[in-house]
Structures are given as C-alpha cells and as structure tokens.
Amino acid sequence: MSIFLAQLLTGLAYGMLYFMIAVGLTIILGVMNVVNLAHGTLFMLGAYIAFTFINDEVNFWAALLLAVLLTAVLGLVLEKLLIKRIYGKELEQVLLTFGLSFIIADAIEWIWGTEMHTLPVPGLLSGSLSIGSTAFPLYRLFVVFIGCLLALLLWYLETKTRVGAIIRAGVDDRAMVSALGINVGLVFTGVFAFGAALAGLSGVLGGPLIGMYTGMDSEILVTSLIVVVIGGLGSWKGSFIGAIAIGVIETLGKVWFPSLSMLTVFLIMMIVLIIRPQGLFGREVA
C-alpha cells in the first residue's frame, strides 16, 4: 500500500513537472496564437544559466531568480525584435521560432560544451520523507507545491485582475481592445516574456531531476506539445489536468505494463484525441 502511495506521489510530482514545462508554451499559444518552438531551448537555457551561477557559489534560490529574470529578458528582446513582426503569419512563426531554437541550442553547446550536467538539489530540500517502507524525496514534494502555486497564480491573474481581463478580451477581439485605448502590443510583449520566464523556471526546477545534455531541448519541446495537445490548445487549465494525468498514468504504467512504457504517453494522447479531438479543455473545433 505504501509503495502504491509513493508511486502515486511520484506520478503527481512528475505530472507537475510536465505542467511547468508546458504551461509557458500553452499560455503564449492561447494568448498570442504563436506556437513557440523555441520553448524547449529556453527551458534548457534556464537550466544552464542557473548551473553557471551555482558553480560560481551563488545560492540555488538566487540562481533560480537570476535564470528566470534572464530568460524573461531574452523573451522580451525576442518579441520586440522578431516575433512582433510576424503576428498572424503562422508559417513564418513556425520557421522563426524553430530557427531560434537551433541558434540558441548551438550557442549553449558553444558556451557550455557537450558534457552532461545536473543541478544540485538545494540543501534545505535534500532530505526525504519516509512513507511506510519507502522514502520520498522532499524536493519532489516541493515541485508539487510550486506547480500548485503556479496554477493558483494563473487562475488569479486570469480571473481576478485587470491584466487578466485585458488578455481575455485581447484573445477574443484584438482590434476592439486596441480601440478602447489599451496597448495590446505591450500586453503581448509581457505575455511572451512571461512564457519565456516560465520556461526558464521549469528548466531550473527540472535541472535536479532531468539534468542537462545536448538534445534535451527537442525532447522537452515534444513533451510540452503533447501536454498542450492533450490539455487543449492554449488552455492552461487543460495543461494542468492533462499533465497530472500523464504523470500519474505514465508512472503507474511503468510499474504495471513495463514493456509499454515507451508508448503510454502517446497512447494517452491517441485516446484523448479520438474521444475529444479538441483536447480536454479545448474549445470545440467544427
């Protein structure tokens, strides 16, 4: 029983990580109609930036903050310089963000080399909690906590704040919102930077769990795309539920049907797409 509980918790923690990885992508997609294919690379960059600071004896939390800030700034610059020129042009967006992902990934390889790295678990959270006969690392509980906090924050921002109202309005009718004297361009810049910051944040928090290596950017991107598709395009709530479902089902699947573990995620995606082609929380597509 305690093993089952531990496995459930493991799945939950892993699902939360999935959520944090995908949420930046889904927000940018939902608000700005942009599929940011550089998302996985921004994730990777966040982890590497934190790695550099931690190696310079900066404490984990300060490194986390700096990495989030720097990826946000990079997101801001990218939006101002490049992305904003091609709103509404899907093909250009795909090519641009895909190209950016290559450039940033190559820059990472150039600066940090091809060796694999991992981030240390912050001292405060390095212990583990014993559940019956098995142990559960505190750091993963912390990941669950941060994931919930993030979902709460998003819910609050979306429904209770003026910015949230502007964003919701901007999604439905951009021209009308502009006509009301609101600077939609500024809002979009902010959203892109926020999405980039979330990628950086998940990169740092995922660092102690996943590590860093060349080629991880595309793995992370594929993972995020799957979560986004299952959850429904652009719906962060869908990503939240979808990510947790994937985490738990994948983890239990590894135990019960080990030989299928390569397929579970894709099986879940297939089943969701057959039953609800628009994804769990997606709006109906005719």
């Binding site: 599929v35 294919l37 895909f98 395009l233 652009g234 709006r283 109906e284």
Partner: peptide
Amino acid sequence: KKKGFLKRAAGMMMLAAMLM
C-alpha cells in the same frame, strides 16, 4: 474566427512535428 484559428494552430503543430 476562433475556430479557424484553432484549426490553423493544429496545422502549425503538424508542421512543427514534420520539421522535427
């Protein structure tokens, strides 16, 4: 308009997958 967008977004994802 929204429906059209969702379809296009799905198309973009397909394209992304193909690029990958």
